[in-house]
């Protein structure tokens, strides 16, 4: 199991705990946690509708691939901590990470 936090619109931190052995990606976990994530392409890094900002712990995550960077580039606003949630694997690396949804 791994625990991470989502900073919600209200500013509150919500703790989410998920298993690491189910081959999940972060987009799937956020969707299952009832967050409004379109994930139009279903996790292929082809639509940029699961844009998140990693507020703490970005260095621990698997790095951005070319495909992810390509898609992020199509967004009007990209920050240095921008990621596509579907490209982040749910592993122990997610422990203590804090993130925020970016629905722009």
């Amino acid at each position: 199991m791994v625990k991470f936090h989502v900073k919600e619109a209200s500013g509150a931190l919500r703790e989410i705990e998920v298993p690491t052995d189910m081959n999940l990606n972060l987009m799937e976990v956020l969707k299952a946690s009832e967050y409004e994530i379109e994930a139009a392409c279903g996790g292929m890094a082809l639509c940029a509708t699961c844009h998140i900002e990693v507020l703490e712990g970005i260095g621990k995550l698997n790095p951005r691939t070319d495909a992810e960077l390509d898609m992020l580039d199509t967004l009007p606003v990209v920050l240095s901590n921008s990621r596509l949630a579907c490209q982040i694997k749910v592993t122990e690396d997610l422990n203590d990470v804090v993130l925020r949804l970016n629905n722009s």
Binding site: E38, A40, C47, A48, T49, T74, L75, P76
Partner: peptide, 8 residues
């Protein structure tokens, strides 16, 4: 002309 792709 801002061209940043489409979103559903």
């Amino acid at each position: 002309i801002p061209l940043f792709g489409l979103s559903p």
